[in-house]
């Protein structure tokens, strides 16, 4: 059963890598260059799917946090922790690829517009989620505090999504795409979603195994009945006698 599982995981990751490679080839060899923005527009095919999957990861943290507050089961805390790690990585990718695009398109690495500011706040919120975890020793207390925090932190996600529609922003709210560009963008969602699910699953499995190891370490080891001390204990009656 374990062997079948590891074969499935290997095939899953090989397929994901293959799809990512095909996606990169599609972006640079198949998709036409956008007329207004030029080749830098090709960042869009990575930037948008990663941004959507960031929201998905944050939603997973929110659902898992609610699950823990409702059922008080450790597996919800492990899932929230796993999804938060992926959310931090993905939000960092969104910010960095956006900054690179902004540098080329607007001439500036960063502008304090609503969308960009709320995105930075989103990244910081989940970084704090990961930072506070090791500082709380009790696993139950840690899970409770992080669950409450995970629910509150999710409030920034709709702000990020709606900000560009409700407030004036330099960040584009929609882009016109040719058919080849649309197909490339839709294709990129497949490997990015596979990577997201795979990373959350792997991180969740790791968190469960780490928690199990810590519990095992706390349990006293059973004493063998035949075990004898290496040296005879010295009592007041036999002092000096070996």
């Amino acid at each position: 059963m374990k062997q079948m599982n590891s074969i499935f995981v290997s095939i899953y990751w090989l397929a994901t890598l293959a799809l990512l490679a095909i996606g990169v080839v599609m972006v640079f060899a198949y998709t036409p260059t956008e007329v207004t923005m030029g080749p830098v527009q090709k960042i869009f095919y990575l930037h948008l799917p990663i941004a959507i999957c960031t929201f998905f990861s944050c939603l997973t943290v929110f659902v898992a946090s609610v699950g823990y507050l409702w059922q008080r089961k450790a597996m919800w805390d492990h899932l929230a922790h796993a999804a938060a790690q992926v959310a931090v990585i993905y939000a960092a990718i969104v910010l960095l690829t956006g900054m690179i695009w902004g540098r080329a398109a607007w001439g500036a690495w960063w502008q304090w517009t609503p969308r960009l500011t709320f995105s930075l706040v989103l990244w910081l919120l989940y970084v704090v989620y990961l930072v506070i975890r090791p500082s709380i020793e009790s696993s139950q207390r840690r899970a409770m505090i992080c669950a409450v925090y995970g629910v509150v932190a999710f409030l920034d996600v709709p702000l990020v999504y709606l900000s560009v529609r409700l407030m004036p922003d330099i960040h584009p709210s929609s882009i016109e795409l040719e058919p080849a560009m649309k197909s490339t963008l839709i294709f990129w969602f497949i490997p990015v979603i596979m990577v997201t699910v795979g990373l959350i699953a792997a991180s969740f499995k790791l968190a469960k195994r780490q928690a199990a190891c810590n519990i095992t370490r706390e349990l006293p080891l059973p004493k063998s009945k035949t075990a004898r001390p290496l040296r005879p204990t010295i009592t007041s009656g036999n002092r000096g006698v070996v």
Partner: peptide, 20 residues
């Protein structure tokens, strides 16, 4: 401009591979 696009993919995919 193309170097910016390549750089973005290197950064993005590099972070994912690094975390994995």
């Amino acid at each position: 401009s193309l170097n910016y696009a390549i750089g973005a993919y290197v950064v993005g995919l590099g972070l994912i591979i690094g975390y994995a």
